[in-house]
Design a protein around this nucleic acid. Structure first.
Ligand SMILES: [Zn+2]
Ligand SMILES: [Zn+2]
Ligand SMILES: [Zn+2]
Ligand SMILES: [Zn+2]
Lengths: 209, 209
DNA sequence: CTTGATACGATATAACATAACATAATTGGA
DNA sequence: TCCAATTATGTTATGTTATATCGTATCAAG
């Protein structure tokens, strides 16, 4: 029972109140230190974002908020999320149009996310090796790197154990053509080539799906 | 004057008709080989997506299409884009809600994109080192990788030369807190730590902004 | 020419996000 | 304490992106 899943997926039976409580405490400390105003509304929105490890849409938050405050409207939520994101307390998941709590808000960073397509839970990585690979590759194209959007779909450990497959499509599932990454291919393949020449809808990589 | 910018940003004065022509030829060949029907509509949408190296929104495409066909409507465009993406001929850029032509449609792959925040142009990387880093990092969390969304904001070589800064915000620019990647930090930093403890809105990395 | 499958037309609505301006709460100083 | 500036929130309206549904047309095969 890991209380604070800073990296990786939390155990299914973990005590999630610890996650929420700690997130709120850290947020309060961070805002106080910076002179930023963590108002009741913003605090409540952060708490809702932290109601699980699955990302929440702005309108999901709004639905709850409407039951608690008269006059809650889309700007209410978006402004709060704006503040929280500016403080590094939440991240937006672009591929889902959703928001998750940041697992390490003390450090400024773009997020790197693992998104389980079976249970919907999300883990944050922030692995410097990924940033390094991106920076190096971008540098070869003469590109100076700013914000990174790194969102990886797949299966979390729990869902793999239970042999669960993907449940429901991601939004705007325009695109069938992406093969999964194989566990480890032989080094020295030509750059750019990821898998064989199989047609897009086949789930086959070069050894594992 | 590189005719086919398979990787990196094309020269500003390149003959873009070559890009478009080649994309359409390859698309025709691919679809023919697969028995997929590249209809006039789909071909035209692909051509519009390839009207530049900047991503195009579905409703941008629709605007043009409406002038050419009676009865064009959102589903017209989305269905065509759906088909093109399933065939690997276009990619969706999640962080922009836009679409770009794929620079290498013969190979199934998730895209990796460099997005210039100054001129708006996009280059596709597909660097196996990035996929490797992601797979390795994900494996440590017990995660099996499927589709990757890799979108990197920054400045392309042309805009760096001209000292242009970012022009306009990306959509839903919720988030101020992402520091740029420095050109190369010392190896051996603790995992997860990307930059110092500076507050989110500061543009400072550890050596370069 | 029929049949089954695929593609497209047409209408409606869902889902996500922001603009603009009014009012309220907070803060810091007179 | 009171005022003025600033920041936060309320309120209404609208913009933008994406999908559902159902009918019609086109196509390929037998
Ligand atoms: Zn938890
Ligand atoms: Zn984070
Ligand atoms: Zn071109
Ligand atoms: Zn591509």
């Amino acid at each position: 029972m890991k209380p604070i899943p800073n990296e990786g997926f939390p155990a299914e039976d973990h005590d999630h109140r610890h996650c929420t409580d700690r997130a709120l405490e850290r947020a309060a400390a961070i805002c106080k230190r910076r002179g930023a105003r963590l108002t009741d509304l913003r605090r409540r929105v952060l708490e809702l974002v932290w109601s699980g490890h699955k990302p929440l849409g702005a309108y999901d938050i709004l639905d709850t908020l409407r039951r608690e405050r008269r006059g809650a409207a889309p700007p209410t939520v978006y402004r709060a999320l704006d503040f929280l994101a500016a403080q590094g307390l939440v991240h937006r998941i672009e591929s889902l149009n959703c928001f998750v709590g940041c697992s390490d808000p003390e450090l400024p960073h773009s997020g790197q996310f693992l998104i389980c397509t079976s249970c919907g839970s999300v883990a944050e990585l922030n692995d410097v090796r990924i940033d390094d690979a991106i920076r190096d590759s971008a540098a070869e194209a003469g590109f100076t790197v700013g914000r990174r959007t790194i969102e990886v779909d797949g299966l979390c450990p729990h869902c793999q154990e239970q042999g669960r497959g993907p449940r429901g499509r991601p939004p705007h599932n325009i695109a069938g053509g992406t093969p999964p990454l194989s566990p480890r291919g032989p080094r020295g393949r030509p750059p750019h080539n990821i898998a064989g020449g199989t047609p897009p809808l086949s789930p086959r990589g070069d050894g594992d799906g």
